[in-house]
Computed example of a mutant assay.
Amino acid sequence: MTSAAALLLALLGPGAAQAAAAGPCQGHKIKTFRFSTGHVTVFKTSGFVCALTYAEDPGRTRRMSVTLQARGHRAVTRSGMFREYAGPLSVRAAHRCVRVSGTVGGGSLAPRWIQC
């Protein structure tokens, strides 16, 4: 964390630190799926589901991806070369099951259905 970010969090108080720790997805965390090289964390807010795939060992650039698919719709993927995480990726999923998967390097999370 940069010194400017640390100063801002100190000025805003402990609640801001918790909000900043949530990362780029809005809403509340509903699930974390772990696999050998990372984990996928899923958040939900106002009819949307947002997910990020985090590397277990951040710092070096490697291929990562995160995929979401609301039942009845096409899968959406964000992939590329990242150091810390792939995403955020959001889909509209009001009252729908959502399929989640992700990869970090050679490890992957097999697709899982949530909210069913």
Results as ranks from 00 to 15, higher is better:
Thr77Cys: 06
Glu56Phe: 00
Phe35Gly: 12
Lys44Gly: 00
Thr61Ser: 13
Arg62Leu: 03
Arg96Leu: 04
Val49Gln: 05
Ser65Gly: 04
Ala94Tyr: 09
Val91Cys: 02
Gly80Gln: 06
Gly87Arg: 05
Ser90Val: 03
Ala94Met: 10
Gln26Phe: 00
Cys97Trp: 03
His28Gln: 14
Pro88Leu: 08
Ser65Met: 02
Val42Asp: 08
Leu68Ile: 10
Val76Lys: 12
Gln26Met: 05
Thr77Trp: 02
Phe43Ala: 14
Tyr54His: 15
Val76Gly: 07
Phe82Met: 02
Val40Asn: 03
Gly38Met: 03
Arg34Ala: 14
Arg60Glu: 15
Glu84His: 11
Arg34Gly: 14
Arg83His: 05
Ser36His: 01
Gln26His: 08
Leu68Lys: 05
Gly47Trp: 10
Ala51Ser: 02
Lys31Gln: 14
Leu68Tyr: 04
Tyr85Cys: 11
Thr53His: 06
Ala75Cys: 09
Ser65Leu: 00
Val91Phe: 01
Val42Gly: 05
Gly27Gln: 12
Lys44Ala: 00
Gly27Pro: 08
Thr61Leu: 15
Pro24Arg: 10
Arg60Ala: 09
Thr37Met: 07
Gly87Asn: 12
Thr37Phe: 02
His39Met: 02
Cys50Gln: 13
Ser79Val: 00
Ser36Met: 04
Gly38Asp: 02
Lys44Gln: 11
Ile30Gly: 01
Met64Glu: 09
Lys44Ser: 05
